[in-house]
């Protein structure tokens, strides 16, 4: 049986984060949305084109961002989310998305990942698809993340 979209992204997230020393990924809540209201500090948006197409928005707090980026930089402390740190966060979720696409490829669906795009700010209203978006609230080694998955096949 084919793996569900949400499972594919959770598998990919766990696989990439484990390379940086983060423990298992636990799904806390799954819901569906038409419109996103983003109240976390940072969001990385990545577009996908091909047999699988859509957008994925990964949202997280500033605290989580610093921990993730620090882990990517071999434990170097990250005080502020400067351009370098933003770029690292974008790259991290680019890796997660690319990893997910290799899992789709095993189902015979070829797709390409576009450039990651990072945004921050308050009270953000966003639409990332005309299809329903699945929102996954996850815990990754004590860090909270939200994955908003809008995949159109």
């Amino acid at each position: 049986m084919e793996q569900k979209h949400t499972d594919i992204f959770l598998t990919a997230l766990e696989s990439v984060l484990s390379q940086f020393g983060f423990g298992g990924v636990t799904l806390n809540k799954e819901s569906t949305k038409d419109q996103l209201f983003i109240d976390r500090d940072f969001t990385v948006v990545i577009g996908i084109t091909g047999d699988v197409k859509g957008n994925i928005a990964y949202s997280f707090s500033s605290d989580t961002a610093r921990k993730l980026v620090s882990a990517m930089m071999m434990g170097a402390p990250v005080e502020t989310m400067d351009d370098m740190a933003m770029s690292a966060a974008g790259e991290l979720f680019n890796m997660v998305t690319a990893n997910a696409l290799t899992l789709f490829e095993k189902q015979g669906k070829a797709a390409a990942v576009s450039l990651p795009f990072v945004l921050s700010g308050g009270d953000i209203y966003a639409i990332i698809s005309t299809v329903e978006t699945t929102a996954l609230e996850v815990d990754a080694g004590g860090n909270e993340l939200e994955l908003n998955i809008a995949i159109e096949e």
Binding site: V45, I48, T49, K53, N55, S120, A126, I127, S129
Partner: peptide, 14 residues
């Protein structure tokens, strides 16, 4: 890819 649209308070794009 499908379009993304957003609005908010002091949204910074990196």
């Amino acid at each position: 890819a499908p379009p993304v649209v957003f609005t908010g308070r002091k949204v910074v794009m990196y």
